[in-house]
Design a binder for these strands. Structure first.
Lengths: 350, 350
DNA sequence: CAACTTATGGCAATCGCTTGCCGCAACATT
DNA sequence: AATGTTGCGGCAAGCGATTGCCATAAGTTG
């Protein structure tokens, strides 16, 4: 009874009503229901286009065969893949986990699936992925893109995409307004009596790193503080030791750190060196990632609605993919942030 | 010069040599190179099948058009999607991050892309995803599957899959050998003088939770300890408070906790209640996730090669997808674990 | 009752690529 | 010179859906 399979049929698992080894196609459903494939297709996607009675027969047939349409074939004609690629520089980094969580959530709600890509902090890999996946994803979410402005502009011109934490005139972006919270942080530090402050820098290719530094420099100077900058550092806890040592050498009494990962690494190093936080040195992180609340001491940091940023990014992408005739879609979303004060900041020493 | 696009052509971004708005197809390449599409196809996938000279001409044409084959169309004929779905119960949980990192790594190496799915701890969603994505993924990696044995057996019979932390006779599995480290942990606790111990349970549907408890019970009894079990708890830090309170009520002096997330949550609660760890209560976590080393106090825990487990799972899946004629592929991989002693365990009180 | 609509389902082209089969030319072999 | 080999490309048939167009039947309208 089994159709002579073309490929090497694997023999196991032919229990139950499974008709053949092969996946059921729309044709099988059509035959079982006694209609043409076109009717099956319509019954399944445009129910109104088909007679109530026929439709039901088809649905039963489909259910009986356990039929699932091939997304590939569907995509072939429609040109859509039902997929969105999310590119992050480093899956290792909890910051991106939250983004991923956000995009995943929103994509699922839209019936799309998420293709996750780690670009390993490399603009080449990013560009390459963007290129290779052009055909396999309907759109892209670029988290903390490492692309140059020119590259980004070019890519944005040829495929739907939205960036996170990387503003650009050429692509819709959602940016997290960390700068304004940096001002809050400096305020906080100033009120604690700090006047020698240090910015601990992240990856040189990071757009948000530059933004943060710019605001930090400007605002701390305005306040008449002694401003230092160290870095760049790879934003991982393991770089924290070098960062902490360098920070100590500057003589600053408080650091604003590119991100929490690095800040937590510094905390560990400072503790190891017997430097007390916040008594001897205050530390402000950024992002409020998983772990910032239970490290030792709990980290004062800039809380960002990261997951929400991921969700908004997807929403913007969707409105780009299915434009509504009326309104132009939003080109920029700014996510608010705030300073969360925990225990890694305190009065300046002396 | 522009072909009258069928859809509403978007006008921007027609800079550069982009010929039309449409993506170049194999046909475009064929025309430009002056050959048939079949030749292009072969030149690109089976280079030997085509003359060196022709091949080069084709490659140039492809490069010039910036051609990328449609994975959809490719898949249509080959039946492959070039994609593997990874199902995790909760993307929120750092444990799975490490798995994802591992699978991602190995998949990329194999030229496959990863479809990430969050099943939200629900066996229905898991089953549903497995069903709906049957056609869009070549195989599945089920991390900590919530499926029943019967469900798992059925699914495993009809599609290539490998499980992580869920042994089954019906599917290749990689399991993390936490149980043997639980014995180590009890050894450690016993040597510190603890004789009232408590297992803090995770999700009732978790296979590994059951395994851990079984070993815990058996071994602690064998040692003549007073054995308690509390739970189930949702394995998040937020459940830690309830878990900590319940643990305290048992009178145990040491807890072995289902996972680090829960353990860290307990740490926080115990600290809030003024219970000192490890002086008043020792805590042993499980998995050694991100954060276990910098929480307060740093957590004694069962270190697991999580990322590696993800990698091995993919390797096993691949050998299932591309079976070598000779050897039968491995059905079970056991990943070794060990106890990492930090500062959340200490001598029993009294 | 003729002329129109409308509802419904089938036919066949199409999407982009792969692949079995065939043809042809250039060599190699008796 | 006749007959095999090879190497190389083209033809055309799929793969599994979608969809424009058409045919048929049934219901409406004047």
């Amino acid at each position: 009874m089994i159709t002579p399979a073309t490929g090497p049929a694997h023999e196991e698992a032919r229990k139950g009503p499974a008709p053949a080894d092969r996946m059921p196609t729309i044709k099988d459903v059509a035959e079982l229901a006694g209609v043409a494939t076109s009717t099956v297709s319509r019954a399944l996607s445009k129910p109104d286009r088909v007679n109530q009675h026929t439709r039901q027969r088809i649905q039963e047939a489909a259910a009986q065969l356990n039929y699932v349409p091939s997304s590939q074939a569907k995509g072939l004609s429609s040109g859509r893949t039902g997929t969105v690629a999310v590119l992050v520089p480093d899956i290792t980094n909890p910051f991106y986990f939250d983004i991923i969580r956000g995009t995943q959530h929103q994509l699922k709600a839209a019936g799309l699936t998420q293709l996750l890509v780690d670009t390993e902090e490399s603009s080449e890999m990013e560009l390459d992925a963007l290129h290779k996946m052009r055909r396999s994803a309907d759109g892209f979410v670029l988290a903390a893109s490492r692309l140059t402005d020119a590259q980004l502009a070019e890519v944005a011109g040829s495929q739907p995409l939205v960036t996170i934490n990387r503003a650009s005139a050429d692509a819709p972006s959602v940016v997290i307004d960390t700068p304004s919270a940096i001002i809050q942080a400096l305020d906080h530090l100033a009120s604690l009596g700090h006047n020698r402050v240090c910015y601990v820098g992240g990856p040189p290719t990071s757009w948000s790193n530059e933004m943060r530094w710019k605001v930090f420099e400007e605002d701390s100077r305005r306040r008449g503080m002694e401003t230092h900058r160290i870095g760049p550092f790879i934003p991982k806890t393991t770089s924290g030791a070098a960062a902490a040592d360098a920070a100590l050498r500057t003589g600053a009494t408080a650091c604003v750190v590119f991100n929490d990962l690095l800040a937590i690494g510094m905390l560990q190093r400072l503790q190891a060196r017997g430097i007390r936080v916040p008594e001897d040195m205050s530390i402000v992180g950024s992002d409020d990632i998983f772990g910032a609340d239970f490290c030792n001491p709990p980290l004062t940091t800039i809380s960002s609605p990261i997951e929400q940023a991921g969700r908004v990014a997807v929403a913007m992408l969707l409105s780009q993919l299915n434009p509504v005739p009326g309104g132009a879609s939003r080109k920029l979303a700014v996510m608010p942030t705030h300073l969360t004060i925990r225990q890694s900041t305190g009065p300046a020493p002396d």
